[in-house]
């Protein structure tokens, strides 16, 4: 819009330039779409074709066998695979992913939005400043430092350690809960997001304080003000944060992997996909230990088609979320233009 002036767009030189830019951009778009197409194509190839005709974009004999295998966990011989990701049918992982994402969404958005609203509009200047640093500080700290301590904290919540050697009375018994192997172990640490806090606060800052004052004079409580006046205005920013939160939780791998590793019936799709690719590409028998069920996996000819099918299934829900939030997203991005 602005670099090349509107008035001179008919000039041949400018037109050529615009064309070149358009071609360049369309190449980028196509390059982006190609892996998606390749993934979908491979997921519909029969295993034999994956090996014998690996470079065809359109499968010769398209088959939904990979999806069937994932959904039923029974191979072409009628054997139940009962190994690795095939211990549970696909819909279980899909359900788990949905559960985790929606739980995160339900916990994170209200908590973060309320905190952002309070810091933006309710707190005194001094308190707001300190709270802002308190909430934003972790964004600047590399999260990986907390991998191990968070794991320990979650394994005997609320105590980071079972005992503290050298300090008296810490070896007494205190009640504790283990969140390892539960969804709460993933959802609770994600119940507040500093990044979304920033987006929310940036938005609430743009709203005039008079709106709240007017509501107060009308006798509305703070909660009513937030619910009836602020939230409807905040719809675009809620859409943006909601979309980010949902996709973030959906894509999260390391969290569920560490917390749910030994609870396979609770794995989300991201972990299931990792495990399937691991079984394909990295699995080696460790010394003296061999999962007896792996034989059925090995001799069932499970290949990249199954992996790609799982990848397709994993991508569909966030694609749907994208379609739903598309309009709001484009609007919200302009509003939450990260001004401060």
């Amino acid at each position: 819009m602005p670099l090349i002036p509107q008035v001179g767009r008919r000039r041949p030189k400018t037109r050529l330039m615009l064309l070149a830019i358009a071609i360049f951009l369309w190449i980028g778009v196509l390059l982006h779409l190609f892996p998606v197409a390749w993934m979908i194509s491979a997921s519909f190839k029969p295993t034999l074709e994956i090996f014998n005709a690996p470079f065809r974009l359109i499968p010769k004999e398209p088959s939904a066998a990979s999806y069937k295998l994932l959904a039923s966990t029974v191979n072409a011989n009628g054997q139940s695979l009962n190994v690795d990701v095939f211990r549970y049918p696909l819909h279980i992982y899909l359900q788990n992913s949905i559960k985790i994402s929606f739980l995160t969404l339900l916990c994170q958005l209200p908590i973060t939005a309320m905190a952002a609203y309070a810091v933006s509009k309710l707190h005194s200047r001094r308190a707001a400043k300190w709270l802002f640093y308190f909430f934003m500080g972790t964004l600047m700290i590399p999260g990986q430092i907390a991998i191990v301590p968070r794991f320990l904290l979650l394994s005997h919540f609320p105590w980071p350690t079972r005992t503290v050697p050298g300090i008296p009375f810490t070896d007494l018994f205190f009640p504790s809960w283990s969140f390892i192997g539960t969804y709460w172990g993933i959802v609770l640490p994600a119940a507040f997001s500093a990044f979304n806090f920033l987006l929310f606060k940036g938005f609430f800052d743009t709203l005039p304080t008079e709106l709240i004052e007017a509501a107060r004079i009308d006798g509305a409580s703070e909660l009513t003000t937030l619910r009836a006046i602020m939230l409807p205005l905040a719809r675009p920013v809620i859409a943006v944060t909601g979309y980010f939160t949902f996709t973030g939780a959906w894509n999260d791998f390391l969290g569920p992997w560490i917390i749910l590793m030994s609870e396979q019936q609770k794995w989300p799709l991201s972990v299931a996909l990792y495990k399937l690719q691991w079984a394909l590409t990295s699995w080696q028998p460790s010394q003296g230990a061999m999962d007896p069920a792996l034989q059925t996996l090995i001799s069932s000819g499970v290949g990249y088609n199954a992996l790609m099918a799982l990848a397709v299934v994993e991508s569909i829900p966030i694609f749907i979320a994208f379609l739903i939030f598309r309009e709001q997203l484009m609007k919200g991005i302009q509003i939450a233009g990260l001004k401060g």
């Binding site: 980028g28 778009v29 894509n251 791998f253 799709l269 994208f322």
Partner: peptide, 10 residues
């Protein structure tokens, strides 16, 4: 088209 999402592990 550009922002058609693919799940990250996928």
């Amino acid at each position: 088209l550009w922002f058609i999402p693919v799940a990250s592990t996928a």
